[in-house]
């Protein structure tokens, strides 16, 4: 019995076993996502208020609305909101809006270039899709853009250049936020100068606590800031083409597996902790085995 226990312990302590099992479990979850699950798994928020607010903000736009899409997400966290951003862009185009993409960060510009390419490849009318490029200077550049935002000469139709002198010319600003420039920057720098401009935002979950107060004060007309709200919005409008394959948001099953693995680690770590042993400062780390 002791020998069997010892053998089992020996197997469990094989170097690299646990990371291998972890990655294998996640890979299995990704493979089986959609096969197993059904109604038992759901990532969409049953409280669909945030999704409804976004839909209402888009409903309020006039025909042929001119929408400024400020693409400033971080490359690292953009995968979390990519599906939602694409769904909102598709929703806007489906409503007949004209989109102008601009970036105030270098990372945002890289993402904007990729999204523009995707939309052009999807056959979006070039007359409804404008590239305003990268505006240097971060917040200073944003403030200058309030009165002076135009594409480089020859890069946009004359009809667009005629109306887009600055951010004030737009019917809605859709801010795709990141660490450097996001809805907070817009609420601080643009809203006081253009109080009538409606601003909607899509941000990754980690920015939600920072941005949520601006929704309550009305400085944002809509905010999608958690994966549950994103999923609820996708459920309401339908996922855009291509979102549920290679560019998919995380599926429910791999997400569940990852969370359970993390929970197991935490439970094991906390259970092995004996209370009353003092603080980190008073105790030396254990010697590695």
């Amino acid at each position: 019995m002791t020998e069997r226990t010892s053998r089992r312990r020996g197997f469990l302590s094989v170097p690299g076993l646990w990371p291998f099992l972890l990655v294998s479990a996640l890979a299995l979850g990704i493979v089986l996502d959609g096969v197993i699950g059904g109604d038992q798994l759901q990532s969409a928020n049953p409280e669909a208020a945030r999704a409804a607010e976004m839909a209402a903000a888009l409903d309020a736009l006039p025909d042929g609305a001119l929408v400024l899409v400020a693409m400033d997400p971080d490359l690292g966290t953009y995968p979390e909101i990519r599906g939602t951003v694409r769904a909102v862009l598709d929703d806007l185009l489906g409503r007949g809006a004209r989109l102008a993409l601009v970036s105030f960060t270098a990372e945002g510009r890289a993402v904007a270039a990729a999204e523009l390419q995707r939309l052009r490849a999807a056959g979006v009318d070039p007359g409804r899709l404008f590239d305003l490029g990268f505006v240097a200077g971060a917040e200073a550049g944003l403030v200058l853009s309030v009165t002076d935002l135009r594409p480089a000469a020859g890069t946009a139709p004359a009809s667009f250049a005629a109306v887009a002198g600055g951010i004030a010319a737009f019917d809605l600003a859709l801010v795709v936020g990141g660490v450097d420039i996001g809805p907070r920057t817009w609420a601080e720098q643009v809203t006081p100068r253009l109080p009538d401009l409606p601003i909607a935002a899509v941000v990754p979950t980690f920015l939600h606590p920072e941005v949520a107060p601006y929704l309550r004060t009305g400085q944002l007309v809509a905010l999608l800031g958690t994966f549950r709200d994103d999923a609820a919005y996708l459920l309401a409008v339908g996922a855009p083409s291509g979102v549920r394959d290679a560019t998919s948001s995380p599926g429910e099953l791999p997400m569940l597996l990852g969370l359970l693995i993390a929970l197991a680690f935490i439970g094991r770590a906390v259970a092995s902790h004996r209370p009353g042993l003092g603080t980190a400062a008073a105790r030396e780390p254990e010697e590695p085995a």
Partner: peptide, 23 residues
């Protein structure tokens, strides 16, 4: 390192993870 702060942090993380379970 048997730190109480780490324990509290992990318990909070555990609660958040439970809240995020996609059920």
């Amino acid at each position: 390192i048997r730190s109480r702060q780490v324990t509290v942090m992990l318990l909070a993380a555990g609660v958040v993870i439970v809240l995020l379970l996609p059920l």
